[in-house]
């Protein structure tokens, strides 16, 4: 088997290589493009203070003590301020299923990395607002 005998194989490999080069990659260009997240995704939380009754069930349910409650801080009639420490949170979903007043939910936002450790403790202002959609700030999409 000389070079000529292998020519067919070489052409087959080349065909495959060219097809792969010009195909859209299987992976995502992450910061600019993201995969679709299902509704049930357990990302960062959102706290709806209007409905909260300061029952502290979410704090008791948390297996890693990531939630801090401040019952003195009241905006509405009987609500409380929650501080979420995302350096500890394991996104198990127990606090959300413990809430009987529909005041605490997960959101599909999972990219919550920060430059400073302190910024990962979401105070009452940050945890009650959704400042952006998951894909909004990432600019133009590739392809």
């Amino acid at each position: 088997m000389g070079f000529v005998g292998n020519l067919g194989d070489i052409f087959r490999i080349l065909k495959h290589v060219f097809r792969q080069v010009f195909r859209r990659p299987f992976t995502y260009f992450y910061p600019f493009e993201d995969r679709p997240y299902p509704e049930a995704t357990r990302g960062r939380h959102i706290h709806i203070r209007e409905k909260c009754t300061a029952c502290a069930q979410c704090v008791r349910a948390c297996p890693v003590a990531a939630i801090r409650i401040d019952k003195e801080d009241k905006k509405f009639e009987k609500d409380c301020a929650l501080y979420f420490d995302y350096t500890r949170c394991i996104f198990c979903g127990d606090c959300v299923s413990a809430c009987r007043f529909e005041a605490l939910f997960h959101t599909p936002i999972v990219d919550i990395s920060e430059g400073d450790r302190e910024d990962l403790v979401y105070g009452p202002d940050k945890i009650t607002t959704l400042d952006r959609d998951p894909l909004e700030w990432r600019g133009r999409r590739f392809r």
Partner: peptide, 8 residues
């Protein structure tokens, strides 16, 4: 000590 931080 972590449990003391929860405010409960």
């Amino acid at each position: 000590s972590r449990m003391d931080e929860t405010g409960l």
